[in-house]
Design a protein around this nucleic acid. Structure first.
Lengths: 205, 205
DNA sequence: CTTAAAATTGACGCCTTGTCTTCAAAGACT
DNA sequence: AGTCTTTGAAGACAAGGCGTCAATTTTAAG
């Protein structure tokens, strides 16, 4: 017995999310209203607010779901890595393949005519960044990576991934391998030149 | 004689922009309304629309002004460069110093609680990116740079600049030189490893 | 001084927002 | 099965934003 109450709750939430995805792509994030979203469902306007506080929160929920889909893959890739190259190369390949495959989802993420860029501050996405930073620190401790500034390195990886990812999608045909190779080569060469670094807290210890 | 009409026109426009900067920082981009902006001036609501179509357009105008402030400096740095290192290093130093200095302006640019990230698609900013791409292509032609994928390289530079820039601002004290050195080293090392590349159009010729 | 053009004003109609009361359906208890 | 309680969907409502426009003031020109 599932409990009818629980079931409709899930159904309604999904209906709203699905409608939101649809409408965000069609109208763009900025132009869509909460009413646009519920109008695309069978529900009443007041019901929306039982599930989300605003259209922003729906957007976050969608982003979180996206992040949850890629994060485990990225994580697995990094844990499996036995050296720097596998770490970097695996991450880029996975990420680029994801955004190339999941185009429909990425359409929501991507630049909209009247909104900014990627929403990067949802809990899940932040958690993903943190995970990356910790994995980098671990790799440095284990001597897989040279002791560079993990925070800046993370920032660089993220920046390159998103920017190249976006350019990659504008090319025809979409070549995720070429994009990943470019990014990987950049970092593989760059590592050797990076200034070595000891975090302030560790230096004090 | 300046012409009184022209003068008040400029004054009004500036008043709106100044009020907008103030309000965007205070309330965040998403939460501010056109009314909030004009309320922070002496003007009437209708007047706003003689100058801008929406709050979005005001935001763009602010971004454009910002871009116009940095672009010439970046350009000069690149034109002066006699080799790869000067090109890269000069650009990063200039950019990081700019965002560190002009904090108030950057506060508008930076992540807001309820909006996304940087608006990257205003005409001036796009022009700035284009300028960078062209400078890169020129440098490649002149043999200063190896023949790499200029588009991806530009994307990487931009991604790294913005992401590291943001992290840099969270550290105390703010060390623009260290940030620039990190980014420069990454690319200096990375270059040598990048796959050589001939753009499709040129390859066809 | 008169007339024409330009630009500002603020009220207006339309729309969205988030809230709140009402009420039907689901589940609990006997 | 019958009654009571709780949940949550519904949809009306007040508050307030949006963009427009006729009226009015301000500047420039003749």
């Amino acid at each position: 017995m599932t409990g009818k109450r629980e079931q409709t709750k899930k159904d309604n939430r999904n209906a709203i999310l699905e409608a939101a995805r649809e409408v965000f792509v069609k109208l763009g994030y900025g132009a869509t209203t909460v009413r646009d979203i519920i109008r695309a469902t069978e529900l009443a306007s007041g019901t929306f607010y039982n599930y989300f506080k605003s259209k922003d929160e729906v957007f976050q929920a969608i982003q979180d779901e996206n992040a949850l889909r890629v994060r485990p893959r990225l994580r697995a890739e990094r844990v499996r890595a036995r050296n720097v190259e596998e770490f970097i190369s695996g991450s880029f390949h996975t990420f680029f393949e994801y955004i190339a495959t999941d185009r429909r989802t990425f359409a929501v993420i991507r630049r909209n005519a009247d909104t900014m860029r990627v929403r990067m501050d949802t809990p899940e996405i932040i958690a993903g960044f943190d995970e990356l930073r910790i994995d980098l620190l671990t790799a440095i401790e284990q001597g897989i990576f040279p002791p560079v500034d993990a925070d800046y390195l993370m920032a660089s990886l993220v920046g390159v991934a998103f920017e190249i990812g976006e350019h990659m999608l504008t090319r025809e045909p979409i070549d995720t391998k070429a994009a990943a190779n470019f990014a990987t080569a950049l970092f593989m060469g760059g590592f050797k030149a990076l200034p070595h670094y000891v975090a302030a807290t560790e230096a004090a210890a």
